[in-house]
Computed example of a mutant assay.
Amino acid sequence: MNKLILGRYFPGNSLLHHLDPRAKLVAGFYFIFVLFLANNWQTYVFLWFFTFLVMHLSDVGLRIYFRGLKPLIWLILFTVFLQILFTAGGEIYVEYGIITISQFGLINGYYIFCRFVMLIFISTVVTLTTKPIDLTDGINRLLSPLRYLKIPVDELSLMLSISLRFIPNLLDETQKVLDAQRARGTEFGGGNLVQQMKKLIPIFIPLFVSSLNRAEDMANAMEVRGYQSGKKRSSFRKLNWCMKDTIAILMMFLLTVCLAFLRTN
């Protein structure tokens, strides 16, 4: 459980660490759109090359990325498995009732696997190389035009930042509770469905209580520091958009051009 690194920050001095958080957020969301432009093996090979290049530029070991992928790999494989079993088209290899294993199903399963893994890797790069407070400022600045529509941008960005920040803490506490229950002789994964659900109750209750306590402590800390919702506040940190940030966005457009050239019409 504590192997999930999405939402954690790794201090470093890489090029990606020095990019403006707005550039990284825009590039990350744009990459999600770019993933759907790939429709053949050439485009996916090119996207894999780009993904590993970005991971290398973060100065974070590849082992850490793959270790963070392990907690999610079964969910990804389950999605791929459903895609393979229930997608028909092309040459049929196995057909039994509603279950069909076909050429298109295998190809689409591979595409979906690549999209999920690359999406997780790029999202992890953004969080590993960006401080949570910088993510808050970046989200706040990107959503600032919504203030004209009377949307509480400050509150939204704060909630997103707090949620992202406390994902690792919640996972760490879950692992501690699991270890404590195992030390008391509890065996997870055994028995029928009802028995397994009963074993989860001693896990959920401490996590729920600790989450409420943490939320109350944070609310008290914010109140002591004078935080008031809806009030205009100054910022100690200033975001500076530099030439390297513009180059990063231009590289994403170049990636789009290359994919458009490689994709099959």
Rank of each mutant, 00 (worst) to 15 (best):
V34Y: 08
S123Q: 04
D172F: 00
L158M: 13
T246M: 03
F66Q: 02
Q195H: 13
F10G: 05
Y65N: 10
L82E: 04
L156H: 11
Y96D: 05
M197P: 03
D137S: 08
M218F: 11
K198V: 05
T127K: 13
L178C: 01
G190W: 12
E187N: 14
G7T: 05
D245Q: 01
T136Q: 14
T124M: 09
K199M: 05
Q103T: 02
V125I: 14
R147A: 05
L77C: 05
T87K: 09
N192R: 14
F36W: 13
I162E: 02
N220H: 04
N140C: 10
M159G: 12
M55T: 11
K238S: 08
G89V: 05
V45A: 15
A219E: 06
S123G: 15
K244I: 09
I151P: 01
L15Y: 15
Q42D: 07
D59R: 15
V26H: 07
L69Q: 03
F33T: 12
D179H: 09
L143T: 06
L75M: 15
E155Y: 04
F33K: 12
G109F: 00
T129W: 11
A38L: 08
M218N: 08
R115V: 06
L6T: 12
R141C: 06
P21L: 07
C114W: 13
M1S: 06
L37P: 03
